[in-house]
Structure formats: structure tokens, C-alpha cells
Amino acid sequence: MVQERTFPKFQAPAAKISADQGLVLYEDMILGRYFEDKCAEMYYRGKMFGFVHLYNGQEAVSSGVIKSLRSDDYVCSTYRDHVHALSAGVPAKQVMAELFGKETGCSRGRGGSMHLFSSEHNMLGGFAFIGEGIPVALGAAFQSRYRRDALGDPNADQVTASFFGDGTTNNGQFFECLNMAALWKLPILFVVENNKWAIGMAHERATSQPEIYKKAAVFGMPGFEVDGMDVMAVRTVAQEAVARARAGEGPTLIECLTYRFRGHSLADPDELRSKAEKEAWLARDPIKRFEAYLLEHKLADQATMKAVRDRIQSSIDEALTFAEESPEPSPDDLYKYIFADE
């Protein structure tokens, strides 16, 4: 087991949240967790194919960041994209149908697990190769600045959140885009989900400077390290970064220290991570932690939280039925969507 980094101190009492806001976060985290659990079940039952990368354990990041955005902001993800899409508002039934390869899926069955898109929800993807989504996110952020400053649209203050993992921060596109974002003061959040492992490559074995947030400084950009298992901590940092971006003050790099509770994908035997390491991180389960927070601050009681869990469970069941009963794409449409305007 690699020496764990010391978690940054988070001044929880300083963070304010209403009961309603707390339940929004709770519901979103439960949705992410239950959705992924259902995916694992369906994959092992042979209903779902390809590479499927689940998000269990990292829910505080998706919920903490995306629920700090407006609905007209943009989200750009990786191959581990189910839960980002759900947090961004893509209906669970559309995501589940996509994983079943159905015409009613958010990418009409053409994309699959690693290529979730929704123009309606400003979900830019779903990028399967490491790092390639960051430039695309940068383009969305550039577009906001272009509309505001070149076209004079005062309402063009949309922010883009670009998610990626620790392994990606050794890739050129990460550095190139940090440079351009800082250079042009683009409204973007670079959100690193440092879950310590790039498949079987431990973060410390892949990088000369494991503290990723420190890489912001050379671009003159604020960089924050945050406990990625604490949704309140993530939310607090994200809200500040969003406010800065919206005000035209430029990008922020946020390194969330987190952990995936399952293997890299459902095809990963997961043999390299030690039992002790996994247990240590399982004990920090972000959902259990937030339940304790809600109880402690009297923002929700057990009955309220159970009602949320029951409601989400039924919505996942409905999504599954919808996915199973939906039609597959028509063979006549094999060539549809190659070109626009056809």
C-alpha cells in the first residue's frame, strides 16, 4: 500500500447548505450509486456489453461539482461517464437504454457506455481516449467567452466543467489546455478525480509530482486539493471556482482525492490494489459520510433519506424496464448520423 496523502482540512462548519439543497446532493449521489450497481448486475447477467467503467466511490465529486452548475453550463466527461451524465440531468432511462444499445438511448445506441452525449443537457461526452475530452471542454469554454467578448452577448456566462482522472494529468492535452485556458481566461473547471490508479499503474509510479493541484501554479492558475469523499468539501471549492469563472476571472484546477470501489472496468481483475487500501477507502464512503452530516446538522432524518433511496430504486427499476422494452436501432439507419444535413 502506497503511503496515503494527508487529507486537506475542510472547515465544515463554514459551509452552509439548506435541507433542500442537501437532499438534492443526497439524491444525486444515491442515483449514481444505485445506477452503477444495476449496471454491474446487468453486465454480469450478459445484458450489457463492451467496456463498462463504474463510478462507485467517486459520487461526491460528480454531485459536488455538477450540482454547483446551472443547467445551461457544460459538462465534459471521460469513459467513466454514466454518473456525470446523470448529475447533468440526462434521464436515467436514457442512459440505461444507451447501455443496452437501444434507439431510445441518449446517443441512440450508437455510442455505448463510453460515449454518452446529450445536446439537450449540454453533456458534451463521453470521451473514451485519455485526455481527448479536455480540448473539447476548452472549446465550449472558449465559445462562452467568444459570445460574451467578440459578439457582445451579456448572457454568455456559461461555465464548463471538464472531468478526468489522475492518469490523464501526465498527458500533453492536460498541460496544453491548462496553458490556453489560463492564457485566455476561459470559464472552465478542470476537475481531476485522483482515484490513485490508472488501471494498474499507481499514480506515484507514473508521475514525478503526485500533488496534481500544484501543477496549476506554473500556469498562474488557482489549484485546490480537496477531499473527494466529502461532497460538502467538493461543493464548496466548486462553487468558488464557478463564481470565479462566471465573473470572467478564468479557470481553476481542482484535485479531488477519491477512490473507485470497483476495478477499472468490469473486465478488470483488480489484483494490484491491496485489501488494506480498499478497506481504508471503503470506510470513507462518501454517501455514508454525507448521511451522517445530514443527520448531525438536522437537515434530514432517517425516514426522509429512506424515502429518497426508495424513490431512486424505483426510478432505476423503471429505467431498466424502459431500456429492456425499447427498440434497437433499425438496420436501415446504419448510415444515419454520419453527416449532418442528410
Partner: peptide, 12 residues
Amino acid sequence: SFTGMAVGAAMT
């Protein structure tokens, strides 16, 4: 990266 940025700008 700037080609990918153009893709993102075109998508939006």
C-alpha cells in the same frame, strides 16, 4: 489540443 478546442467550439 487546439483542434479539439475547435471541435468543442463547433459542438456549441
